[in-house]
Amino acid sequence: MRRLCLGIESTAHTFGAAIASDDGRIVSDVRDIYVPEAGKGIHPTGAAQHHSSVADKVVIAAFKDAHVRPEKIDAVAFSCGPGLGPCLRVGATVARAISVYFQKPLVPVNHAIAHIEIASLTTGARDPLVVLVSGGHTAIATYAARRWRICGETEDITLGNLLDMFARATGLSTPGGPEVERMAENGREMLDLPYTVKGNDVAYSGLLTAALREHKKGTQMADLCFSLQEVAFSMLTEATERALAHTGKRELLLTGGVAANRRLQSMLESIAQEHEAEFRVVDRRFSGDSGAQIAWTGILAFKAGLTVSVEESHVRPRWRLDEVDVAWRR
């Protein structure tokens, strides 16, 4: 019999609920996204209030879309971290309530690992070098002996942060990635912006400061967005290429919200070809945060016996992806 898992996502902007089956199907996937005031970043309590107000509607819709009654699921998974405390607690509370009421096991899921697992599912990647890029992460990782191991990461802000903060400060709408990508299409002039690669690590805060200084000087937005993308993505691509050469992996897997960016995709595809690795990108529907990634990873963790009692189901806002015991991978 196929097993079903409800997954609840609430690390940041998105409140999502989805149902996944252990034969690798996402049976339903519902989201409601908190939109901050124009020009402002995410406010943790504001987002948490949003999540509480839509939670019931989203969860009910997830069951309805799947044509599944709550009694029929086998487990309830929730994003346990990393993320914003107030947001995480909403998802955890909803998951605990469903778990207790319907007597279903509770499964804590690491949100970053879930980005990797949903990408593995939708692309069929088996043993990839992973590039995870989102608002919360910029990391290059490989798997060995039950852990994802970080080969490189940002030493300060993430790629998603860089694009969002730049967009907010320059009056573009957020999330900044798609806007910057659109503006960059008409850019031609390559500006001299700081390029910081340290081994396999990158650092973006200097680039952000310099880009904002250019903006104040009145530099054309098209050129600025173009140059910002070129420098930021080249840095990450270089770090990734080093990791690819060092690890000798045969697959390169791009996942997370910023994975949808076509320029970044084309750069990474280029180095994958160069090193005879297959390049794969997470299905566009699942690049941004979703309940689907939690439900699917929840199924994997549940089948490996990684459940938690309600009493011990604290959220973990700083749960690093390299701390997770990945008992389900060979």
Binding site: R149, C151, G199, N200, H246, T247
Partner: peptide, 16 residues
Amino acid sequence: GVDLHLLKRSLHSTHH
């Protein structure tokens, strides 16, 4: 510090 941090991380990812 960053120099040694990078080496430490590289050891952890390739010679764990």
